[in-house]
Simulated scan of single mutants.
Amino acid sequence: MDDTEEVLRVTGLAKHYPVRSGPLRRRTGRVHAVDGVDLALRAGRTLGLVGESGCGKTTTGRMAVRLLEPTAGKIVVAGRDVTRARGADLRALRRDLQLVFQDPYASLSPRMTVHDIIAEPLRVQGRYDDGGAKRVAELLDMVRLAPAHARRYAHEFSGGQRQRIGIARALALDPKVLVLDEPVSALDVSIQAQVVNTLRELQRDLGVAYLFISHDLSVVRHVSHEIAVMYLGKVVERGTREDIFRRAAHPYTQALLSAVPRPEPGGAGRRDRITLTGDVPSPVDPPSGCRFRTRCWKARDVCAAEEPPLVVREGSGHPVACHFPGPAEPRTGTTTTKETL
């Protein structure tokens, strides 16, 4: 049992957007971007949040740091309910929760030097006058950049260096949690490894917790202690890294994992590839019952009638939202191919 401090918990988190049509722009429906997500994160740990594009990962992360207001749900940071925080309470939240964006260039002001970019949160929180310049130099060193870089502008750096600047800025206020939204997806593979290793070193030294949002399961496996898998606005499986990669019980998770390249040569690299047929349903009108049932080879009548709760089920050993969890046995609705890498 992990006895480290719980630094973030979201319960029943939801975000719905109205759909309007007609000359009077009347509401005719709503987009279920996120629909009842529960997550918990402990100090010094990484929770990987994975799923297809459009499943609600980024929306969940932005609600957690209150860049988006949730339609429903509760956000607790270090024991404090900050779901409806305003004013001074919201500014205090910013000290504990920071976000690193996917695009390291778009998230940095082209009109500010690196020093001013990193110093900005210190100034906003009234902490720059108390050793702010020294703090900026420390942060640059922590992310493996030279002090001389502080005088330059964002366009003078490579993509990996710009992402390091964004990480340094996010760490300026000693946050308890970093929400990392696809932090290496825009980088070359070799640079991805460097940035990921830097993040791991920072976590080891600072004890900061990461909510690591990504569609790249190979990266998530490398950095995460626990993993939550999202599909169409809901978490369908949650467990430790070993639970997900060795004992995946939800058909959607199994399909995602089957697409991950494996490095073993010859026979050791052979595995069944599960190719799902059909499109992801519209979040405006999600399927009844289990949202994955329209693409699932295990679907039965009960899957349309009842939504499976995210609970520990017999044979899974970890929470999974499926009426028929277990080993992958593709049948109708999938194409199975044997691949050798």
Rank of each mutant, 00 (worst) to 15 (best):
V143F: 05
V143G: 01
R144G: 09
R144Q: 13
A146W: 01
A146H: 11
P147D: 10
A148T: 10
A148K: 06
A150P: 02
A150G: 00
R151H: 10
R151Q: 09
R152I: 01
F157S: 03
G160R: 13
Q161E: 15
Q161R: 12
R162M: 04
I165T: 09
I165H: 08
A168I: 04
A168K: 08
L173A: 06
L173F: 12
D174N: 14
K176S: 15
K176Y: 04
K176D: 14
V179P: 09
L180W: 06
L180A: 11
D181A: 12
E182R: 13
P183W: 09
P183K: 14
S185A: 15
S185H: 08
A186R: 06
L187R: 01
I191G: 07
Q192A: 09
T198F: 04
R200P: 01
R200D: 10
L202V: 15
Q203A: 06
A209C: 08
Y210G: 11
F212K: 06
S214D: 01
D216E: 00
H222C: 08
H222P: 05
V223C: 08
S224F: 11
H225F: 05
E226M: 04
M230L: 14
M230A: 07
M230I: 04
L232R: 04
K234C: 05
V236W: 14
T240C: 11
T240G: 15
